[in-house]
Design a protein around this nucleic acid. Structure first.
Lengths: 260, 260
DNA sequence: GAGCAGCGTCGACATTGTCGAACGACGTTT
DNA sequence: AAACGTCGTTCGACAATGTCGACGCTGCTC
């Protein structure tokens, strides 16, 4: 039996559907979307509900994700070794630079944020742990595609959306930039995913030098990039690059990576 | 077929096992713990891994929770209506009181934290969204047990651990306090779960006055409670109670609860 | 180098999930 | 107000599917 369990695959598909879709979905919506008989979909949903992965609105009868997922997601973070080691260094990086810091790992066709340090000022910010960033247009993603063959393969298969006029979507251009990233050891993305935002990222590797994640610094272009004499944005500030790379090296060292 | 799907139940049990247990579990550990044949456990784990709910360490072959759970947990929060409505009010409450604010919902035998506003000072704090608090010894839990029959039933069946010398574990005492909570409309817990910490909570209800969650304020006894002339801690400060109740009322109103 | 312990695979069996139709409740329409 | 349509849920029969235990295989330890 080299195959996988059908009912589990379907249950996972239902969960993903509920996660991606609108607020709540009716039974028939679920059944239709996945091409299942109503009875079948209902059986799976009933079990998922019993286990807490799905909740049902008593009035409308519609289904939505359940609380158990939040609890298990938290448990995932608790166990995550990379995250545990990186907490302190990410904090330091945010404090030293005054900017937002993200820690991400490759997950499917994107970068999953596993840690997020707020910019150390009082402005209101929303926690983005658990959300995804694109592989092709964010600094975190660029680092991972440059160093992780799996990430590159995923990127090649996925659709590359142009979020801003600066987004690079051509495969050749992406590969060329990846070569540069590998060469110099860090990546940047200036207004390629969010207008006005620039980011710098560096690779984190484990004791066997496998790429396991990346750390990034995000901030407004005005602060992250230098300003050319003519007033336009120039290259990113070298001292920030140094800070990010040092943070990545420190985390890698904590994970047991050889010291070079 | 009124029963539930066996393979799904087992998969859920495996996920909970991985969440509760040590960092990583070997295949045989999982199979033994659940009384499954190795082949069966392997099939389920393989599927869960394929779907991203479980990851396998390449070296040791051991299994741990997967990143997809974090992503889905985040989606749960995104969809959560109570949380969305409460964000602003919780923030206000924290700002006005200067203390930590929690938002919790009943989940299984405890209170699941779905939102957490840090105390507005610079001390380091860890986000507790996704973690659980006990029903019998935290203010959030007391409110829910007092107003939600399901919560009370869960509490009766569960083991009531005494976290501190102040924890009340007797069923009669708990029911008596629940009556008081229902009467006055709010709950307190002074050093019943964590020593040195006092909390005040009030109920949130939806448009049909069903209890859907609770909001709580947590802080050190010295700031949350009044001080008796002899120096010991007295009752909680009335003005904080007013703030918490107002926040709960505001959130309930946003959810469509009748204005009395 | 032999032993051991662990993961992964395979094939037979029957248990178990799947399907489609029918039921009952609810809300809307004619 | 009655008839219709829609939706969630239940049911029973069928066979597809997951389960089981034994067997390789690899990588450690002694």
């Amino acid at each position: 039996m080299a195959g996988s369990i059908q009912s589990l695959e379907r249950a996972a598909a239902i969960l993903r559907l509920l996660a991606g879709g609108e607020r709540r979905l009716a039974l028939s919506d679920v059944a239709n979307a996945l091409g299942l008989a109503k009875g079948t979909a209902h059986g799976i949903l009933r079990t998922l509900q019993q286990e807490g992965f799905v909740e049902q609105d008593k009035d409308s009868g519609k289904y939505q994700l359940g609380a158990e997922l939040l609890r298990l997601g938290q448990s995932y973070l608790d166990v995550h070794e990379l995250r545990a080691r990186a907490l302190v260094w990410a904090d330091d990086l945010a404090r030293a630079s005054g900017e937002t810091v993200y820690l991400g790992v490759l997950h499917q066709r994107g970068v999953l944020i596993v840690h997020h340090v707020f910019r150390p000022d009082d402005t209101r910010q929303v926690l983005e742990v658990g959300s995804m960033q694109p592989l092709h247009s964010a600094a975190l993603g660029k680092v991972l595609t440059a160093f992780d063959p799996v990430a590159r393969a995923e990127l090649m298969e996925s659709e590359r959306e142009a979020f801003t006029p600066h987004t690079v979507t051509g495969l050749d251009a992406i590969d060329a930039e990846a070569a540069v990233v590998r060469e110099r050891g860090w990546a940047q993305a200036v207004e390629e995913t969010w207008t006005g935002v620039a980011s710098i990222a560096a690779l984190i590797q484990d004791r066997r030098r496998n790429p396991v994640g990346a750390v990034a610094l995000n901030g407004p272009v005005e602060r992250v990039c230098t300003t050319e004499p003519n007033g336009t944005a120039g290259p990113v500030r070298p001292e920030l690059v140094v800070s990010v790379r040092e943070a990545a090296r420190a985390i890698s060292r904590d994970l047991g990576a050889p010291r070079f």
